[in-house]
Design a protein around this nucleic acid. Sequence first.
DNA 1: GTGAAAGCGCTAACAA
DNA 2: TTGTTAGCGCTTTCAC
Lengths: 365, 365
Amino acid sequence: MKFFIEILSYVHHIEFPAKQEEQQMRPTVYDIAKDAGVSLATVDRVLNNRPGVRDKTIQQVQDAIEKLGYVRDVAAANLARQRSYDFVCVLPDNRSEFLREVRAAIDEAAAGMTFERTRINVREFPLDDTNQLIDLLGEIEAEQPDGLAIMAPETPAVRDAVKRIMASGTHVTPIVSDLPSTGRNHFVGINNVGAGRTAAQLMGRFLGSKSATILVVAGSMVSTDHAERRAGFDETMQIHFPQHDVLPTLEAFDKAENVKVRVGEALQHCPEIAGIYSIGAGNQGLVSILHETGRARDITVIAHELTDCSRSALKGGTFDAVIAQNVGHIVRSAFRILKAQTDDLMTIESQERIRTEIFIAENLT
Amino acid sequence: MKFFIEILSYVHHIEFPAKQEEQQMRPTVYDIAKDAGVSLATVDRVLNNRPGVRDKTIQQVQDAIEKLGYVRDVAAANLARQRSYDFVCVLPDNRSEFLREVRAAIDEAAAGMTFERTRINVREFPLDDTNQLIDLLGEIEAEQPDGLAIMAPETPAVRDAVKRIMASGTHVTPIVSDLPSTGRNHFVGINNVGAGRTAAQLMGRFLGSKSATILVVAGSMVSTDHAERRAGFDETMQIHFPQHDVLPTLEAFDKAENVKVRVGEALQHCPEIAGIYSIGAGNQGLVSILHETGRARDITVIAHELTDCSRSALKGGTFDAVIAQNVGHIVRSAFRILKAQTDDLMTIESQERIRTEIFIAENLT
DNA sequence: GTGAAAGCGCTAACAA
DNA sequence: TTGTTAGCGCTTTCAC
């Protein structure tokens, strides 16, 4: 063996001058145990700050860690620990295109994470029955999963239920629509006021300088994200484009049928409408009525979320811009955060910031 | 022990009815070895399609894999294999803000990946000396890293050097600027023709209907990404906004000083310029000259890449829009792809598609 | 061609 | 309070 090593180092000088540097293997628990003069178990205790170690010993171990620049091999740790992440995701049972995309993104993420022994359990609640949501949250509290990603309206009862879940040790991350009053650590989604401002700026720019009438269609003003978007829209409109006339919000409950009917009526009563801001879902209805009335091209429309419908409307020139959030990014980010939290690890801030994206026909991927 | 198990299952019925379902553990190599009636070693050989197994045996093992729905635990595999990923990243030594951001993103990614035993070695080459780049690529070929992420101009010599690297077993992914002629599997970056089209569409919309003169500033038309952006810009301008007059490209080599001087001259000779499309770097120069000449607000400018400079120009109203690519996303994606390739794994397509982002003051994060 | 057994870096009973 | 030891799921000599 000695001989072999000598051969290697001989060859080394001739052939692999670069390899030498790579030999500096990462120190392991053994190295730090040796250096600190303690056993593996003790090192492990310190590493996971478990009780039952004298302060002095802790210090020795930590010095060794520092000195050798030890970093724990999380993969090995999880293997030994037989760790598996048990996450649940709560969503409205609404079957809008947007939520279908969220679903798809979750499935995709779940598939990619089986490798990392992560299970994601999706649960739905009817948007119109908060009691069922509360019951569901109660069940989840009992199940004690490692993490919960939730998209739900913020009512006092929801807030309390979520707080109880958090108190029971489950990490919670609201997605898409924030639940600030729960005191959650992270929210994964866009700033909806900013999204509304963005829509207004584009609308104003696209409409030009002469005054116009603008129609705003939303799901429901009870939904916080929609309300925030409207607020941001009005704010920017007022400041930068006061010449335009913005009509009161039309509530269509995110259903294509409603959107179609309500917008149709509005267009009839108010043919001078030159711009439409569609805050919520149900864009298929908007597209049909615009085509049926022959106004698809001359009205400037800005909508939310990238879906098959909005994509083709953009390409066809019916929609002028779409404000979107990357759902794939949102769900991956949410689970990355939940996992980091359960492992008590840091997250890369910049990686978890969800951007308010703008799409026009030209930058559709 | 038997007794203990009985106790547990007793408790189970009373307390943890939900847990039962979770018991369906993932099958391991042991399970498939047992099912196929062979040893671990043989299973492993089949799993990694190593030679020395009878066809019949291979079939038995594969049947078992199929039947039990086995999926390999990559973490455990890498642990046993003592695998570490050795990646190198080649970049121009250009000190533009954009490249600094790329650098930062790489450092951040590298920090996040030490956990996954990944080392990233960044190497630079002077943009004006292709020979040095070729030499560098030669060195890298000799080092045989697992993967190479490269941002470089596509010359025949570069192409050949890269092809040799690929032939030697190193996976290669061009980033930001593609190297299609190398036959790479993936390119991580945006479609620059599309980016140019996007810029044109916004420029046209923002300028309004009356005809205007537009100045285009780029780094160098030798740089493919810049050339592609210009091509896309011209195309859309021609089709949708033929009323505007687009001037020939001003080459400023991505240096603020040059940009300032050249744009200053252009503005003097051609005061009717109403729009500027800045394709490359050196935007600080553009911002200063616009302020010095007092034209910061009245000229519509569209630039590329989100940097401190472009951010503040957007906020201050000097820039009207910025087309960007998310560098953090690009580098993470590149290394994710390289890692997947070295492990012979699939990648999530949607996660690796880099979007052409549009920023205005309102949607800056 | 195939199998037995010794790890990879870490954790967790169980002893001491 | 600390140490011993047997795994986690997979790979890899080295025998047979």
